[in-house]
Structure formats: structure tokens, C-alpha cells
Amino acid sequence: MASLIRTVKGMPPTALFGAAVIAIYVLVAVFAPLLAPYSEREVVGDQYLQWSAQHWLGTDNLGRDMLTRLIFGARNTLAIAFFATALAFVIGTVTGLLAATLGGVVDQVLSRVVDIIMAVPGLIFILLLLTIFGTGIVTLIAVIAVLDSTRVFRLARAVAFGIVAMDYVEAARVRGEGLLWIMRREILPNAAAPLVAEFGMRFCFVFLTIAALSFLGLGIQPPLADWGSMVRENATLITFGDITPLLPAAAIALLTVAVNFVVDWILHKVSGMKD
């Protein structure tokens, strides 16, 4: 607890702001059903109602409460992005560490596969696969996780390569330690900091990708509430000068900014850089 307080005290204001925003988002996502005034799919009135006491942010294109959708949107959008990122991380880290530790053919094969996947813009691959498999949450998570794991792979491999070259890893090898022990005890603890920072960045990237896909109508499908789709569904309001449809977009932007602030701080702490 004391160390937590010390850490918080040492944070620059941007990182502090970022951490606070992330905490609020998580709380909203977890307690969505308690916080939201209506239920997620309930039609509560006419279409496009103005902001009022009953409907703080008005209603959407089908007459559902905007605030409620916004709150549930936090839950759906965050959860899907988080799962996709986490999955990408598990795949990328494991293969990356394996490639660096084993080297040789394993590394060659994995690296070439990743090279090929990364030779094509990610969004294009995603769109191609969504065309073939159709849209759906499971497909979405799987496709994004696999494609994004290539970037995690590159980082994990590069970081681990730097560590593998260290004498202490060599010492563990010639001691006769097993592969798992070396990966778990010698490499992973030293790779943790850059990987955590990368997790933040990948999360932002995945989050923005899913938002973009949903905005295009190819991501999270109705009637689930989701920020990207909410913008698309209500975009016409903007041409009348109504900013309501921009609120979910702003919610996305705020979270990404927040995560980036925290990541920046972690990276500076890790590299020990002063600027």
C-alpha cells in the first residue's frame, strides 16, 4: 500500500489523469447495469429526442436512451478490446520468447510467417477475413488477436533477444537449466516492463480498430450497444449541429489518450529517460 502511494506521488500529472480516467472507465464497465437508468435494448421513447430530465442525453435512432447505451457501450467495447488484446498478447509473447530462446529454425519459420502477415496492412487482412467468415464477436476477437499478435511477437522477440545475449542467461544455459525455467525466471522478469507498456499501446490500437470496424458496421453488431456503432447510427444528427453522436467518439478518444499517457510514463520509467 505504501509503495502504491509512493508510485502515485511520483506520477506526472498526465499519467495521474490517465490512470484516473482508466479507473473510472473500468468502474463504469463493471457496474453498468447498476449505473444505467434504463436497460440496454429497451425502446423508451421517440427517435432522436432532445436532452431532457428523463433522457439526459436524449434518445437514439430507434428511440433507446443514449446515456444507457453509452454506459453499456463501455462494457461491451472495453471487454471485447481487452479480450482481443490479451489473446494477442498470450500468442505473441509465447511465440516471441520461443523464437528468441530457441533461435534457429523455429525463429526463422515464425519470423517469416510474421513478415508475410505484416506485409499486408492489418485492416485489409481483417476485412478480407470478415468477408469470408462473416461478422460476429468471436470472429472479430479471433481475427484481431491473431493479426495483432504479430506485433507483440516482434517486440517480445526483440526484447528477449537482448536478454538472451546476456551472460546470466548463458550461465543458466550452461548450468543445464531447462527451457521453461530460463524463459520464466531469467527472461520474462526482465522483459516485463516493455511488455506492459506494449500492452497499453496494443490495447489502444485494438480498441481503435474495433471502434473503426463497428463504425463501418463490420464490428460489434446491433442490438449490442457499442461506441463505434452508436456514432454511425446517429451520425445524421451531426449535420443538424447536434453533438450527441460525438459523445461515444469522445469517450473512445478520452480512453485512448488516457492509456497513452500512462504508457508514456511507464516507458520513460523503464528507459530511465528524462525527456
Binding site: 489502444c204 481503435l208 471502434a211 473503426a212 463504425f215 463505434g228 456514432v231 451520425a235 451531426i238 449535420t239 443538424f240 449541429g241 453533438i243 453522436p245 460525438l246 467518439a249 469522445a250 473512445i252 478518444a253 485512448t256 489518450v257 492509456v259 497513452n260 499517457f261 508514456d264
Partner: peptide, 22 residues
């Protein structure tokens, strides 16, 4: 940092709101 954190459609709609609608 803020600009790269914004979804493209957010930037696009903000531009529409101010430069086109307003």
C-alpha cells in the same frame, strides 16, 4: 499524442461539425 489517440471518424465529424455545419 492526443491526435493519434482519436479515432479517425471522430476527427472527421468534428471537422464537419465546425467547418461545415457551423
Amino acid at each position: 499524442l492526443t491526435a493519434i489517440s482519436f479515432p479517425e471518424f471522430f476527427v472527421a465529424y468534428i471537422l464537419i461539425l465546425f467547418l461545415s455545419v457551423k
